[in-house]
Design a binder for these strands. Structure first.
Lengths: 333, 333
DNA sequence: ATGAAAGCGCTAACAT
DNA sequence: ATGTTAGCGCTTTCAT
């Protein structure tokens, strides 16, 4: 079965200390010895146990990533860049989908701690703050992605949600829309997007009303349902700002089934600029998050925190970018 | 910092053996003792180290999952169900995207072994068979997903690719298409789909030619490029069977830019039935893989292999299902 | 019913 | 230059 350091030592005729040294490329020794050990490692197909070494104080070289749902394209896309960057740095990542469920979050966070992950990236939004605080107290580097720091005093990386909401809404307003609904998520980030939505209206001296603000959880089905709710409320708005692409797609699909023409009868702006935004017809006008940059950055940050703890914490906001495609147009009079 | 079993033992006034027993719910002891220990575990917020226990022979409660690319919706969707099912069974999963790169596969497989994963699910297609053999030899349960067993003698779970290819093609043929191209991947599964494509033709006494078989790697961009190549070759076929939805979407997009009407000028069938198939316009006719069932099944299998090794190995084929949407129509005369 | 102690595979000080 | 040894946090057998 799996050879251990002892097997290698015996086969190479040296002590385990020597083997350990060649594994870690530390210490000094005769070149011939090093070669001999390397050879026998290869011959035995020896693979040092990361668990054993982690137990002696070294890291586990694994990162934990908490997302709401890995099957949501936004998260799978960002997970991919996180994974790539992590591997470039010799780390792998355990992905957990919380389904925006506080119990699951708790369970997964504890699990990740028991697995001794070297750091945790939290891109999931429902929080049991106490749990996360525990993590921080226990000195496990933790950074928030797509989220504010929830009062934890950790660094957070996200897009400028306020600005994104502002730009999405301003675009609609500039096209003449005066009756704009917003479908947000429950997450904090959505709150900022709502504020941006409000700000854009206010700036133009436009009224807003609670009636135009809807909330749901990200999924195509929920997007459809939201549109149904909006329509039930009475007058159909001319524009909808959906706080993510998944919801926007749902709105598009439902609108079509209702016989609403897009963008003639209804303009839609999404958020995220995932792969979905390019596959709808018309293409989805949306607010792009710099997914790759954010993913890379978050692992850079967490790795530097792992290397030398107590880095200064920051709140990093990336610039959102309005991508105009076909789901928005000048409002019909 | 993190409390250990010693801290708990000391605080509770018992030995670590006793604490271990309550952690694992083994052995007998006075109820009061058990309670006392439980209480102090709670008070100290103690979380047993999985690494330490793994080192003593228990499992790591971790599964490794190798996929070509987690940002491909098919894989992120199946990863989600795998993750869910795994967690239901107290296991978490480390996901690695190989990018269909043999070197990466090798690197990740070794990594996963060093991390002592209890089992590995391989849904990635380019194989360094030797590496995988090593895994099997070392007695780490391994099951192939979406792939045949590559001569490893392990159980494999996939859709019936041959049948899927046959049905996709037959559908096109039944709509009157006589000039059908196929865009496949390099994977083994694609080979089966090609055979299905061939079979469907043969059954109808229709000619086929190598000229109509194209290969690429799954991505929208490669789908677009493939269509360009097909067009360059001369006569544009009336039907295209793309071996996955991503490629199909690329074909649709490129076709539109070329001014080709879908399905009037070109009928398209995809494969997978991912979220993308519902967002295109028209909706994508595609071959559905039972993603949830396959995902659940694969973890059930691997878990039973982990529990009692040497399960009988099988080749499990799920039934594909043709989902007719809007990208296919009777051929124009 | 409870505890002492050996051992899992490795690292890192300390000897030689 | 190389080896000895004491942990790391836990499980498990064997005593008590």
């Amino acid at each position: 079965m799996k050879p251990t350091i002892y097997d290698v030592a015996k086969a190479a005729g040296v002590s385990i200390a020597t083997v350990s040294k060649v594994i870690n490329n530390t210490g000094k020794m005769r070149d011939t010895t090093r070669e001999k050990v390397k050879d026998t490692m290869k011959k035995l197909n020896y693979q040092p146990s990361l668990m054993a070494s982690a137990l002696t104080g070294k890291g586990t070289e694994t990162l934990g990533l908490l997302v709401p749902d890995i099957s949501n394209p936004f998260f799978s896309q960002i997970a991919k860049t996180i994974e790539d960057r992590a591997h470039e740095n010799g780390m792998s990542v355990i992905i957990c989908s919380t389904d925006e469920n506080t119990d699951k979050e708790k369970k997964y966070v504890e699990l990740l701690q028991r697995k001794h992950v070297d750091g945790m990236i939290v891109a999931s939004s429902y929080h049991n703050i106490e749990i996360l605080k525990e993590v921080v107290n226990r000195n496990t580097p933790l950074v928030m992605l797509t989220q504010d720091d929830a009062g934890l005093g950790v660094t957070s990386i996200s897009v400028d949600d306020f600005k994104g909401g502002y730009e999405a809404t301003s675009h609609l307003i500039s096209e003449g829309h005066r009756d704009i609904a917003i479908i947000a998520e429950y997450a904090k980030s959505s709150k900022q997007r709502i504020y941006g939505y409000l700000e854009a209206h206010e700036e133009q001296g436009l009224e807003t009303s609670e009636d135009h603000i809807f909330r749901t959880i990200a999924s195509i089905e929920n997007g459809r349902e939201s549109l149904r709710k909006i329509v039930q409320k009475g007058k159909v708005p001319t524009g909808i700002f959906a706080c993510n692409d998944l919801i926007a797609v749902g709105v598009i699909q439902e609108a079509k089934e209702m016989g609403l023409k897009i963008p003639e009868d209804l303009s839609i702006v999404g958020f995220d600029n995932t792969i979905l935004a390019t596959t709808t017809v018309p293409g989805l006008t949306t607010i792009a998050q710099p997914i790759t940059e954010m993913g890379n950055r978050v692992v850079d940050v967490i790795i530097s925190e792992i290397k030398n703890k107590n880095q200064t914490k920051e709140r990093i906001l990336f610039k959102p970018q309005l991508i105009i495609r076909g789901t928005t147009a000048v409002v019909k009079i």
